[in-house]
Design a protein around this nucleic acid. Structure first.
Length: 137
DNA sequence: GCCAACGTTGGC
DNA sequence: GCCAACGTTGGC
């Protein structure tokens, strides 16, 4: 059971948009490493939803409801996506500043690879972040 | 196949 | 709005 983190600019697609939609396709990922992460996801796995640029905080938890499948709109046939649904909002959103200030989280992909939009989260990081967010882990 | 130029991302 | 980091593109 792996854990993940999805980044999205709220001006483009926010947590509120996801709540309103109930479910969405996580398409439009171009970066190869991010694509590999999508490919590695299994249905039922969970991920944090992070607002980049505006907010810069973890705002909720999503679940992968459909594992990787090709994007029919991609002419190269290489790009794919997963489907996600919201699970729960974070009672206490965890800001980037808080994450940066925590030594235990210094190894996170979020910090080490700031431009990676779909990143892995370790079990330990998941537990710690869940607790910081006021979520049961 | 190399590498310079360019575009994009995302924090500040 | 700026800039650093870094991935991608395209000419050679």
């Amino acid at each position: 059971m792996a854990y993940w983190l999805f980044k999205s600019e709220p001006s483009h697609y926010s947590w509120e948009n996801l709540l309103a939609d109930g479910r969405t396709r996580w398409d439009g990922v171009r970066n190869a490493e991010a694509q590999n992460n999508l490919r590695a996801m299994r249905a039922g796995e969970r991920a944090f939803f992070y607002h980049s640029q505006v907010g810069k905080e973890i705002v909720g938890v999503v679940e992968v409801v459909r594992s990787f499948y090709p994007d029919p709109g991609d002419p190269s046939g290489k790009l794919g996506m997963v489907d996600v649904k919201p699970v729960t909002a974070a009672p206490k959103p965890v800001t980037l500043a808080v994450i940066k200030a925590n030594k235990e989280l210094a190894g996170m992909s979020l910090l080490k690879k700031p431009r990676l939009s779909v990143a892995p989260v370790s079990e330990r990081e998941w537990a710690l972040l869940s607790s910081l967010a006021g979520l049961p882990s």
